[in-house]
Amino acid sequence: MRKTILSIVTALAAVASTLVVLTGPAQAHGYISSPPSRQANCAQGRVANCGPIVYEPQSVEGPKGQRNCHGGLSQFAQLSDESKPWPATSVGQNVTFNWVLTARHATSTWEYFIGNTRVAVFNDGGRQPGATVSHNVNLGGFSGRQRLLAIWNIADTPMAFYSCVDLQIGGGNPNPQPSPTPTVTPRPPSPTPTVTPPPAGGTWRTGTYYATGSTVTYGGATYRCLQAHTSLAGWEPPNVPALWARV
C-alpha cells in the first residue's frame, strides 16, 4: 500500500516535472570553433571578462539581417567591444571555418562578411545541416587584420546565429600586444568557470598532465593515477575512480 501511494506521488511528480522540462529554457545552437571566434576565445578562457557568453558560446541568436558580433543581445554585448584584446589568427587567402552545432536547424544560408563585403555564401536550400559543418572561404583579396562576421540563417524562423572571427590575413604580426599563444599559455584563471582551487594541503591541480602511476594528495588522502590524462575541473580524484585509486 505504501508503495502504491509512493508510486502515485511519483507519477504525479512525473507529470509535473515533465512539463517543466519540456517548457525549459530555449536550447542553443552553434558557433565557429576554428579559427576561434570571439565566443570560442571567451569560452576557452583565452579572453577575460566576457560575461555570460563563456557558458553558452552557442547562443548568439538574433533576428536576421544584423551586422554585429552579438546578435543584438545586450547580455553578449562584449562580443562587439572592439577595445577588448581579441587575438587574431594568422591565415592565408583560403580559410576553412569549422562550426560546432548543438541543434540542427533547417538552414537557408551561411554568410561570411568582411566589412560590408559578403566574401562567401553557402545556400543549403532549407536542408538540415550535418552534425558538424565546415566551409572553405576565399577572403576575396582582403589583407591585414580583419574582423570577419559569419551568419547562420535559419530557414524556418526569423532568426540567425552570429559569430565574429578576428583574422590576420597574409602575414604580419597578428597580435602586436604581448599576447598569449595557445601552446605556451597556462589556462588563465580569471574568466574560466571551471578552475577549482585545490583543497588545503592537496597537491592535485587542474590543467596538469599526470602520468600513470604518479601520486597526488587531495582532501587529505593520497591517490595514484591509473590512466595518464590532463586533469580537469570535475575530475577531482575522489570523483573519478577510473582515473585515480586511493592508496
Partner: peptide
C-alpha cells in the same frame, strides 16, 4: 556540468 565545461575549454 563542471567537467564537460572543462572538456569544452580543452
Amino acid at each position: 556540468e563542471e567537467s564537460r565545461n572543462a572538456q569544452i575549454q580543452e
